[in-house]
Design a protein around this nucleic acid. Structure first.
Lengths: 167, 167
DNA sequence: CGGTTTGTTCAATTCTGACTGAACGGTAGA
DNA sequence: TCTACCGTTCAGTCAGAATTGAACAAACCG
């Protein structure tokens, strides 16, 4: 029976690891999140390294960045010398907010280019500028949509125990 | 004045190229889209290679995948031997729909794992299964939000073409 | 027919960044 | 103090993807 669980766990880790890579993040960082979701409890530094079969150095760097991104928290247990990690309860919403902010940043970056262009170039680049503004607007619209979804999910996950229906 | 435009173009290409890499796509594919947006007209195969400073082989592979993804269209000009490429007018919406579908696929992938787990593993993996379903639901919610944004953007961009036809 | 242009393909190359592993500093207990 | 353990760091390694460039086939023109 633990067999079934562990194969399911392996499949889950592989799936999320691949998804993590597909969106530009490292495989391990995705799998750390996946393992914490699967286990539903705080895991120690050593447990992560063993369960994922990766070096302690990788655990260190990846947990640090995940911590800085506000996805997981490092917790100390009295009497234990190892660090433990647990998911922030709004970790999914945090990831969405991150994406939303990056889109907004790209959008304003486009607008900045457009502003400099129309300021110094007269109206020769007018058509291009209009298209760039549309393209920037697209980024902002998507950012807004994702931010809204983030709020929705945050409202559902905050202070809710896992297993509650989200439908 | 063309100076200003070309520096703005270079900045735009760099920005979108980096954004493209950040989300797991190739730099060149993002820059092809960016160049077509900036120019606002169909560009030839050769123009793309020269303007982006990349090999013809790269243009070939990237335009093919973008074409397959429904982002741009290959058009022939009578009398011209070169292929020309232009953006599909709903190209942004198409990219969003692609992301939405990938999220849905990941979500159902998680649900499949969960189904196999609860079917064969008894109730020992019950807690994990509940958490996995929540995690799958998260993916579906985001997919839905992005799909909605895609529809919104499609509605905004489709009417820009005068005398447009539906499908 | 040859010569030119064009797009595709694929083996080779380059490049990026993830990952490792060992050295290091810090901490707690004996 | 010494020892054992723990997390961090970083130079080195490695894998996979992106990109190149040359070979190739097709279409066109003289």
């Amino acid at each position: 029976m633990t067999d079934h669980i562990s194969t399911a766990q392996q499949e889950f880790l592989a799936l999320i690891g691949a998804a993590s890579e597909a969106e530009g993040k490292s495989r391990i960082s995705g799998q750390i999140i996946a393992l914490l979701v699967f286990e539903g409890r705080a895991l120690s530094f050593g447990e992560l390294a063993v369960a994922l079969g990766v070096s302690r150095g990788s655990i260190s760097t990846n947990t640090r960045t995940l911590e800085a991104r506000g996805v997981l928290a490092r917790v100390q247990r009295s009497g234990e010398r190892q660090d433990y990690f647990e998911l922030v309860d709004v970790h999914s919403a945090t990831l969405l907010r991150e994406i939303s902010q990056r889109l907004d940043r790209t959008g304003t970056g486009i607008e900045d280019i457009c502003a400099r262009l129309s300021h110094s170039g007269g109206d020769s680049g007018h058509g291009a500028c209009a298209r760039l503004r549309d393209y920037a607007a697209f980024h902002h619209i998507v950012a807004k949509a994702i931010a809204t979804a983030s709020d929705e999910i945050e409202g559902k996950t905050a202070h809710l125990r896992p297993g509650d229906s989200v439908e």
